[in-house]
Design a protein around this nucleic acid. Structure first.
Length: 266
DNA sequence: CTAATTTGACCTAC
DNA sequence: GTAGGTCAAATTAG
């Protein structure tokens, strides 16, 4: 696939993702007034995206057809359909019979963000796809992709490796950005927060002393190597938030609710 | 039964 | 040639 075609596919996938988000929004509304026509409209929009992708990918003989992501989902899950390459005669899936050429395994140095955290959780749903022993490292590196990679085309990746000190912290590197919504969530105001983030978020809003403490101690902000035994629990909690979680709140779109957040992200 | 994880093989950049 | 990133069959968990 040439570069421009890949770009078109990427744009179509983005459009499909937004259509799905819109459907989720409309469903909530629809549930209240009993209307059902929204799903039909959304199905037609979705078919357009899938059909476009099928045409772009029709480089073999035979035909492409839509299949549900998972058989038990059935027709009700209209936005989770994906293209498959099928035999003209039998309709059998030929995708598995063809040895796919693997993609280029570029070493990733650009477009990466690094953080140190005591938890692997970040509000998104990840699927582990590999683990590797790393030269001169005590702990293996684990590789994760977004759970929705195949369904929503989300290209976000992350690598996690345990730090070789006594802190038991994790070194986490992100590649690419999520084009899907955070998962593992429950309602909060107009948006969503997972359980842990919600707790931290309310702590931020309810504890002005902590905020003042952090604001007047900028040296504590982004230095994970500083000694911890002399720090108060409050400061430790704050430090973790500053380094690891503001990016997450940014994704939720509620960063402006948090006093002084801009100080740490500038 | 389905989805997620494990893990050895495969593949590419360096 | 090797280190590290990815794939995918086998295995495990829910």
């Amino acid at each position: 696939m040439d570069e421009s075609k890949e770009k078109v596919v990427e744009i179509l996938i983005r459009g499909r993702n937004y259509a799905k988000m819109l459907q989720n929004l409309l469903r909530r509304k629809v549930d209240n007034d009993g209307s059902v026509s929204v799903d039909n409209i959304m199905m037609e929009i979705m078919k357009s995206f899938v059909d476009s992708l099928l045409v772009l990918n029709s480089f073999h003989t035979g035909k492409f057809c839509r299949v549900p992501v998972s058989p038990h989902m059935g027709l009700a899950c209209s936005l989770d359909w994906v293209p498959k390459f099928c035999s003209e005669e039998t309709g059998k899936d030929l995708t598995l019979g063809v040895r796919k050429r693997r993609g280029s395994y570029k070493r990733r140095t650009i477009d990466s963000r690094v953080k140190t955290s005591c938890t692997i959780e970040d509000g998104y749903s990840w699927r582990k796809y590999g683990q590797k022993e790393i030269l001169n490292s005590k702990f293996p590196r684990c590789y994760f992709r977004c759970t929705h990679k195949h369904v929503l085309g989300c290209k976000a990746l992350k690598q996690v490796q345990k730090l070789e000190d006594e802190t038991n912290m994790l070194h986490i590197t992100y590649f690419g950005y999520h084009t899907c919504s955070p998962s593992n969530t429950f309602s909060h105001h107009g948006g969503v927060l997972d359980r842990k983030d919600s707790k931290i978020y309310h702590n931020l809003l309810d504890n002005p002393l902590t905020i003042t403490n952090v604001q007047t101690n900028p040296s504590l902000e982004k230095d994970p190597s500083s000694p911890k035994d002399t720090e108060s629990l409050t400061t430790l909690v704050w430090k973790e938030i500053m380094i690891n979680d503001l990016e997450c709140f940014k994704n939720y779109g509620i960063l402006s609710d948090i006093p002084f957040a801009n100080v740490f992200l500038s």
